[in-house]
Design a protein around this nucleic acid. Structure first.
Lengths: 339, 339
DNA sequence: TTACAAAGGCGAAACGTTTCGCTCTGTTTA
DNA sequence: TAAACAGAGCGAAACGTTTCGCCTTTGTAA
């Protein structure tokens, strides 16, 4: 049905080798170049990527495995990944791990069978066992957002620790000493953020009572409930650090429903930009992650590692931590002495 | 490097044909079956899908094109699509159209070149021109959520019109006659919902002043601003219909920040479930879409059409409208006579 | 014991490219 | 003027499967 390179051969009288050379950008006499061009148009010829893949053993396809595809953070990352890969001629095959390590492992196998040239992963699992098949088949892997300790892995992430240190420092500089944290230690990024907070609180000798620490899921629900509980305390905090997008959403919802007003009664600073940055009123102080940069760097690194491996060289296994920018808002108030 | 079917041949003394038969579930003597199984394990053999694709001319890959991959609605649909395709041995290649018709058109071409077996599309464009290349190459297409008038297309969507009719009827049954609508006529689903509302309002002879109609983007921002404006009117509405998830998010945010309380001062009903359903307090009345059913039906239909085409039969081009369920909440109050 | 059918196995061709090593032609260099 | 060389083209092999038509074996019924 579809035209092949052989049909072009018939039509132009040239050899397969020459036509292939043309298709791959090699040197061909101007005269023949024209002939081939013409034949391609007339026959509506399209390269059969399957055949090409078979012989080059490159599928020009990247497997993308995300912890939760319905998550906004993941979605935005996916957008930028797709963009970048596409520009380099790669297609993206996605698999959703649904926060399930078992499924994640299956995803890797599935994609490896589909002969992806490389893997881009935002992992659920915290050890690298599930990536063993990829290592065995010499398929390069680049992690995003969440790193795993393994010398065979490269990772592009964000400096969560430094950013949350900075956030707490800001609250403290405004005079706050009753600081609560709503976050999660269930995932690595959450832990890093939490540890950053704690470090500065220790440094500045700010006590943090147990009831000011709200650790749970990175979910709207956790943000909402935690904020409600904090506001209901006999001695509520004067400032709250909110560990991610969903938590912010829930927590701000809770504040708005309550009799508290921010920043008058409570100061807020949060992690992740995404949608709400220019919407909430008053504007929130936010630690915003360089989503596009993270995605692009990861895609670039993966593609370059694929090339390196093909050329027999060693791939680059660096862990890169991108800086997080803190954007000022109007959600933090100075604390008067007596508070 | 990697083991091939030939290595298994060497090891077992069987022919390629027999081994292939085994791999594809054909009948093989128990004795040989064991031999092959053993060899596969020892050699760590994996079928090379590229070679298989070349000869069967099936890539076992579906192209999925979404209007905006960072959109929560799209994300949830993607999750269910991936799930279903996966279970049938198909991989999903995603492309993000970023709400850009030009990019959408490119996406189709790109995926067709990658030799996908079929296309699943939530379209940006409202005419089918951009799908012409798929029709030419006889690649089946199933639309989701948003239909396009073209006899060559199948579509699985939701009965937006009926659902919003129902929603307005409920508000009206509670006695409301000052009903505002925040929605969008920029996309087909938005228009269907809007028309459903209008139909019932007409039927029941409920006047709808211009300032009660807020049409814009399906965005948090539009919901937020519109609700603010509605509440600031000299004669604000007693009830508001909110056209989608993002609008609900923004609108509820605006209500919570205001001095209004729902349902006391204003009644609310919204379209789309997604995240907030069991969170907002008081609970919202919501029209929830059967996301999983929509995704699964679409994937099933596409796969079955792929089979039909391969067998030389005509694919099924139906447009299926799934019913939307309205889930009661506590966000609607009765209106007293004098209002 | 023969005949026959069914089951299982086999060799070879096919799928549509890329690539290696060779040849030919014409031009530059010493 | 001969030697060296670059540019362009070619034929054939290779990539790793599936599948077609044919052959062999085995078991069963007549």
């Amino acid at each position: 049905m579809a035209a092949t390179i052989r049909d072009i051969k018939e039509r132009t009288g040239l050899s397969l080798a020459t036509i292939s050379k043309y298709l791959n950008g090699g040197n061909v006499l101007p005269e023949n170049r024209e002939k081939i061009k013409e034949a391609i148009v007339e026959l509506n010829y399209q390269v059969n990527e399957m055949a090409r893949s078979l012989v080059t053993s490159q599928s020009k396809t990247i497997g993308v495995v995300v912890f939760d595809i319905a998550n906004v953070f993941a979605g935005i990352l996916l957008r930028h990944i797709g963009e970048k890969l596409r520009a380099s001629g790669y297609a993206a095959m996605f698999c959703d791990s649904m926060n399930d390590p078992g499924l994640e492992k299956e995803n890797i196998r599935f994609l490896l069978n589909k002969k992806v040239d490389g893997l881009l992963v935002i992992p659920v699992e915290e050890t690298s066992d599930f990536l063993e098949p990829a290592f065995n088949e010499n398929v390069p892997v680049v992690l995003m957002d969440r790193s795993i300790k393994d010398p065979r892995l490269a990772c592009i992430k964000v400096d969560n620790h430094a950013a949350s240190e900075e956030a707490i420092r800001i609250l403290s500089d405004y005079g706050h000493r009753k600081i609560a944290i709503i976050g999660s230690t269930l995932i690595p990024t959450g832990r890093e953020r939490f540890e950053g907070c704690i470090k500065v609180l220790r440094e500045r000798r700010i006590e943090i009572p147990e009831e000011y620490v709200k650790l749970g899921q990175h979910s709207i629900e956790h943000g909402y409930r935690s904020m409600q509980e904090l506001l209901a305390l006999p001695e509520p905090p004067t400032a709250v650090f909110m560990g991610n997008f969903e938590i912010i959403l829930g927590a701000v919802m809770a504040v708005n429903e309550s009799s508290f007003e921010y920043p008058r009664d409570i100061s807020l600073i949060g992690f992740d930009d995404l949608l709400i940055s220019n919407l909430s009123n008053p504007r929130l102080w936010l630690a915003v992650q360089p989503m596009q940069e993270m995605a692009w760097k990861a895609a670039d690194l993966l593609i370059s590692n694929i090339r390196l491996i093909r050329e027999g060289q060693d791939p680059v296994r660096s862990e890169i931590k991108l800086p997080v920018k803190i954007i000022p808002g109007s959600s933090i108030a100075h604390v008067s002495e007596n508070k």
